[in-house]
Amino acid sequence: MKEELIVSGRMNYKVDPTLHIWGWEIPLYLFLGGLAAGVLFFAALYYLRGKDKEYQAAVKWVPMITPFLLVIGLIALFYDLNHKLYFWRLYTSINLQSPMSWGAWALLVITPLSVVWSATYVREAFPFWKWPFAWLDTLEDFFIKNRTVLAWIMIVYASILGIYTGILLSAFNSRPLWNTSILGPLFLVSGLSAGAALIMMLSNNPLERKRFSQIDLMLIGIEIFLIIHMFMGFRASTEVQIEAAALFLGGPYTLPFWIFAVFLGMVLPAFLEIWELRGNHIPAYIPAILILCGNIALRFIIVYAGQSSRYLY
């Protein structure tokens, strides 16, 4: 029998992060970030493709939620900090190697951007809207004229934010489960599909809904491909990564992952959408909500499982 014993010290969740340093805050933050990134990405995309008339929900209305999503996300992140008073330190340095760092910066850019973007559509939403100050009107005109520029900046930063939500974890090569290049793309794609789902849910234009359920279908396809790919990678990799994968293949996280994240969050909504595209009627919010929940589940499970996966020595 082999016995490994920590004789003194470290038997303390505050000292041993395998007993979770990150709680619910980080996964929530990642989910909201990804979701917002998804929405803004599509908004910018379809604006640039001149589809702002067809896909009004995507381009105009849904983005109006994103400032709130992002702010809630930031609040969650802030809540996770143990040394809150020093929050501002995030913005006294840029550490290119620290996803946390450029995630913080990306948010700093994209949050106001999302506000501005939404602001430029306020009058369309509420025709009688009046800005309190005249200079705001001029500002509005300015941005409306330069929407294309805004869109370009937004599409770039949305992608950064989206990828960041995945990179944040995969940067930690000390956690075998996160130590995979696939996590970045996976989270980006799942973020996009969440965004698409939200748009699909809130749009009242059948055409737009159809479009986005097609997009979603495609994205889910990619997600599932990436997941399979990820596990194949693990299995073909080192002892520790095989162990990490085992967390989902028979291990404690098997059920939550395959049932909630994969089946309810991807496979089932995919079927429902195919069903709908085949012409049968299914209320759009059902697959959408499933996808959103699956998204949350995915991030929670990856964050938690990742922390309990570690090198053994």
Binding site: N12, K14, I21, N82, K84
Partner: peptide
């Protein structure tokens, strides 16, 4: 007084050598 206590470093250390000090910093 530069540490925001985000825990990133704790999660990143393969040796679990860091801990969050009760005063907030790592």
């Amino acid at each position: 007084d530069m540490c925001i206590g985000c825990g990133a470093c704790i999660a990143s250390c393969p040796y679990d050598a860091r801990y969050p000090h009760p005063d907030g910093y790592v």
